[in-house]
């Protein structure tokens, strides 16, 4: 790392309309590199204008979209996504996708930004929520599994990048045994190890998407990864 980039300070916004935004804030504030991160809770367009990067937390995607519309944040968020780094966890991942299944009746608003088709509540009701050990490429100490907490989590159904879109990089997959029984895909896909439903973390361009909740664990490594691999390089 060059000396210039090691002195950068990033202003990281957390969308604080609804959901687990305080949990993200707590983890960012206990990182070993916390001196290089200024946290802003984003509720208005003015808050967003201060940020170099944004985290969209877990919560209810419909609630967040409705609140973003009434706060006049939808267009500023879409504009932000065009040039800056954004990480969506769970509900945030739904908002970052380009199309969604199991949307509320009458459809729901998305921000777009990552070329995936995603299904809400992929596993069904809360009784199906689970924790699973994940191997995540690029994390510090990556041989130690990372606990993914999946709560009424979405499922990636399909990667849909057009030739002009930045390539999609898969960061973590779930063991196929943990998959929901619905959304049956052809067996051939599964045998080839390319079942998109096992994808639980991915990057495309500036953006990071996780269908689970790194904000619900005591493990800082995912937030560290986001700051060091996504946010700081974008400022250098």
């Amino acid at each position: 790392m060059s000396s210039a980039s090691s002195t950068l300070i990033a202003t990281v916004g957390i969308l604080a309309l609804q959901g687990a935004f305080a949990e993200h804030q707590t983890i960012l504030q206990r990182l070993s590199i916390k001196r290089r991160v200024i946290v802003v809770l984003v509720r208005t367009a003015e808050d967003l204008a201060k940020c170099d990067a944004l985290i969209i937390p877990g919560g209810e995607s419909t609630t967040m979209a409705i609140l973003a519309r009434s706060a006049g944040l939808l267009e500023p968020l879409r504009e932000f996504l065009r040039t800056k780094v954004v990480w969506g966890t769970c509900a945030g991942a739904i908002l970052l996708s380009t199309s969604v299944e199991n949307a509320k009746k009458g459809g729901q608003e998305l921000l777009g930004g990552i070329s995936v088709k995603i299904a809400r509540n992929g596993w069904g009701s809360q009784v199906e929520s689970f924790e699973a050990a994940l191997e995540v490429e690029g994390l510090r100490d990556s041989s130690r599994p990372y606990t993914g907490v999946f709560i009424r989590a979405p499922v990636v159904l399909e990667l849909t990048p057009s030739p002009l879109d930045p390539p999609i990089e898969i960061i973590a997959r779930l063991s196929p045994q943990c998959l929901p029984r619905s959304h049956d895909l052809p067996q051939a896909d599964i045998a080839a190890g390319s079942d998109p439903r096992t994808i639980v973390a991915l990057r495309q361009g500036h953006h990071l998407l996780t269908t689970f909740h790194p904000e619900l664990t005591d493990d800082n490594r995912f937030h560290e990864y986001f700051i060091q691999q996504c946010v700081l390089p974008s400022l250098a």
Binding site: S129, F130, E131, A133, E135, C178
Partner: peptide, 27 residues
């Protein structure tokens, strides 16, 4: 959330996912 020990393991109905849903409802 508890750290799960071996690679492919998973657990449902833990206190982590129970209280986790409440955390998603906050605000």
């Amino acid at each position: 959330s508890k750290e799960l020990r071996d690679g492919g393991s998973s657990a449902s109905g833990t206190f982590g996912v129970k209280s986790g849903l409440a955390q998603m409802l906050k605000g």
